[in-house]
Design a protein around this nucleic acid. Structure first.
Lengths: 165, 165
DNA sequence: GTATTTGCAAAGAATTTGCAGTTAT
DNA sequence: ATAACTGCAAATTCTTTGCAAATAC
């Protein structure tokens, strides 16, 4: 008898895309669903091993490539030579600010920004397909101020887990 | 007797940074100064070989790394697995629009944009250090229109040389 | 049943490095 | 003179692949 948690969000998407759900894929899908940071392949592999020890790195590589092709995952490059992954969030683009001192990644949204970029592409004679925006910054001295806000709503989320470039 | 052209712009910068100017570095500096695209290491090596055949790839790698550390060069990643390089342009940031159909890179400026990003970093509690922005787009049907403009000035420049992602 | 997927280990691609000899300052 | 630089080939690092065995549907 196999104990089986409910389908993870990403497993759902895999099924919708007609992918064959092997044990390994289920585990990787779950790891990805539960990640709220930007793990690289090695980190995904490590997390997957905790749930199921008969997984190889090769499968992790194959799976992230597959899921990227299906548009379920997005590959990021924050420098450091390895690809990082995160689940595609439809509609709601978000961007990354990388702390140059410790590699930590802060996510932020800026809905207005995407429109600006669409207009810009348009002016250059192009139809907007996608974009990549990374900000690099250095933390200012904390002055005990209110949380960062853009257009009145809380906007940033800081990551902690194995998330250093 | 050695025939020696005038110092290239990048050679100047190297000297200002106190780097030892070997023949190889001079050649690489010149290739970089004359490039107005985003060559990868292999392409730099190829161009350097034309000017001086006793250069090795290892030296090109070592040199671009050094110049990047000194802030003279900037490394770019337009996908395709290899790093691309271009001279740092102080003050005047520029961005890249990649044509998804053929990998061609169009450069554009948007001075307003950089200010927006600085403000954004500030709101998140960070001092702006640098940023990376890549737009991916698909060329619209040419409708015989005037060249793309932003804020009234011509703004885009298209590359041709070995510049396909 | 059969086409897909997996693990393993070997192959690849891009980049780095150890070392002995060369060169800029 | 001497510390830094170079070429070469070997080493590293990240990622892909060929093949025989395993598995989903």
């Amino acid at each position: 008898m196999k104990i089986q948690a409910a389908e993870s969000r990403i497993e759902q998407l895999c099924i919708e895309h007609g992918l064959k759900m092997t044990g390994q894929r289920r585990v990787i899908a779950r790891v990805l669903s539960e990640a709220d940071d930007h793990p690289d392949v090695e980190e995904l592999y490590r997390r997957a091993l905790v749930l199921d020890s008969r997984i190889s790195v090769a499968t992790v590589y194959r799976t992230v490539r597959l899921l990227e092709e299906k548009g379920i995952l997005e590959r990021r490059d924050f420098g450091g030579g390895r690809a990082r992954y995160e689940a595609t969030e439809h509609g709601r683009h978000h961007y990354h600010l990388i702390d140059v001192d410790n590699g930590r990644v802060i996510e932020f949204e800026d809905p207005e920004h995407e429109n600006l970029m669409k207009k810009l592409a348009d002016r250059l004679g192009f139809e907007f397909v996608s974009m990549r925006l990374e900000l690099f910054g250095r933390k200012k001295q904390p002055v005990a101020k209110a949380p960062a806000r853009v257009a009145g709503k809380k906007v940033a989320k800081v990551h902690k887990k194995g998330d250093v470039a």
